[in-house]
């Protein structure tokens, strides 16, 4: 199930088979829609929305379809309605380029305002959008320490206990009966967690890619892969390179 099709059918009250995990002693739930929920702190985390990717390309002469922002926001609406969190943290690359949030069409701005009403909203700055957001609710910052965890866009090098990051768009591949199946995933070894990309037109990077080396204790690394309506949790050792 690709995310763009998911956005057409997604329902907030869809019974979700989530996966429970613990990051540095903080309980967390991996939602199949691609968001992380921290029940003890009522925090919802998403990462790499890459809003306005289509128009970023159109400005350079490639007329990609202009539907990506709406689709991403629809899934975001659903997952926020499902958990109704006190705080929402968007972990960077919120927009595909620096001027994306300035050029955001009004209807999308309204959608975000509605979602943010009555909640605390944090925009972590990413490498695509390092300058924060304009005319949107919430606070922009480079990183945030909250609930005993550190939230930033790019994972810091080495093992970083209690870090929740994005940027890498992790994906994992399993093989069954000689067939390969590849999905975006949450990657965690219990110390840190790297989020799947939430945006509908984002690609993925395999967990075995060299950009991932050194980040996790592979003995305890688990890929929580996004399935149609549930999470499939597979140990690193059982993944295909």
């Amino acid at each position: 199930m690709n995310r763009i099709a998911l956005s057409m059918t997604v329902l907030a009250d869809n019974p979700a088979f989530s996966a429970r995990t613990v990051i540095h002693d903080v309980a967390a739930i991996c939602d199949p829609l691609g968001a992380l929920y921290l029940p003890d702190h009522d925090v919802l985390v998403v990462s790499d929305l890459h809003l306005e990717k289509g128009s970023a390309f159109a400005r350079r002469g490639m007329m990609l379809p202009p539907y990506d922002t709406l689709a991403t926001l629809k899934i975001l609406e659903a997952v926020i309605a499902r958990h109704n969190p006190k705080t929402v943290i968007s972990l960077g690359d919120n927009f595909h380029d620096r001027i994306g949030s300035t050029h955001l069409p009004e209807p999308f701005r309204l959608m975000i305002e509605t979602m943010a009403r009555g909640r605390e909203w944090i925009w972590i700055n990413g490498n695509h959008d390092p300058d924060g957001t304009t005319r949107l609710p919430g606070t922009a910052m480079d990183e945030l320490r909250h609930a005993g965890l550190t939230f930033r866009h790019e994972p810091s090098s080495g093992t970083a206990k209690g870090e929740v990051a994005g940027h890498l768009h992790p994906a994992a591949t399993v093989t069954r009966r000689e067939k390969k199946i590849r999905r975006a995933c949450f990657a965690t070894d219990g110390h840190r967690l790297v989020m799947p990309a939430f945006g509908v037109t984002t690609g993925g990077l395999d967990l075995r890619h060299k950009a991932m080396t050194g980040l996790f204790d592979r003995q305890n690394l688990v890929a929580h892969m996004l399935g149609r309506d549930r999470i499939y949790s597979v140990r690193f050792a059982n993944l295909l390179g």
Binding site: N2, I4, A5, G54, P65, Y67, D68, A71, V200, T201
Partner: peptide, 9 residues
């Protein structure tokens, strides 16, 4: 990805 977007929208 473009294909998926057009297919749906």
């Amino acid at each position: 990805l473009i294909y998926d977007v057009l297919r749906s929208h």
